[in-house]
Amino acid sequence: MASSPTRAPAATAREAVLSLRGITKSFGAVAALTGVDLDVSAGEVVAVVGDNGAGKSTLVKILSGVHAPDGGTITFESRQVSIASPAAAHQLGIATVFQDLALCENLNVIENLFLGQELRALRLDDVAMEVRSWELLRQLSAKIPTVRIPVASLSGGQRQTVAIARSLLGDPKVIVLDEPTAALGVAQTTEVLNLVERLREQGHGVIMISHNMADVKAVADRVAVLRLGRNNGFFDAATVSAEDLIAAITGAHDNVVARRATRTAPSTSSSTGKAAQP
């Protein structure tokens, strides 16, 4: 069923925890984002999809305080805020899992989980940190044998789990995941999608960046499409068809992938470009 894109960035029923209006960001001559709107409310998974270079990662970095936006407003829990640094994002309650995970491979799991937020600065409370680490990992049903090994010796899925567990420390309101499944195999992808499901159940607002249609249809409530740095429609994930999403992503209603998607599986199995992300 082809559903028409809505104008409104928010689902009407609940009030948004985090809303962006007219976010703009340029890198020199490249306008990475132009007038982007986005809303997420508690217990909701919003997928942000778009082609390579659409500006998804730039949006993530603005939310996490890595880049400052050139224009636009960010409203968090009905207050207008500015996110000046990663620490400021964390204090607000916005946690981010970056595409490259941003883990320190020479540190062990506990040290990575508590990096920058260690308990007792002058005499580290390693027992409390280890206990809390196990709690977090079990809460996510993570399959990590021991927390005292360097992150370098974990598999891709395990690292993703550590990165997600880290974002849960300090009980954030909003969790931003940048391409959480891009580098993973089938089983590990399922694992991570289950994690996202669990985050929603626990009442977190989740923004999940993806360019995999199957993942989006599997966990998202709403889908926001970015194209060349601009909003290109908001969709209800339950009703939107893959071909409409692809059309919005590529900007063309009539192309080979869209036609093929219509012919074969209308709901789940298609995805756009497979090229590795930078």
Binding site: P86, N106, G116
Partner: peptide
């Protein structure tokens, strides 16, 4: 080995960008 400063030293040596994004 036992202070927050020490952990941040190791973190910066391991991955400075990750340390920055962790709020260090």
């Amino acid at each position: 080995s036992r202070t927050k400063w020490g952990k941040s030293v190791y973190a910066v040596g391991g991955n400075a960008e990750a340390a920055r994004r962790a709020g260090i």
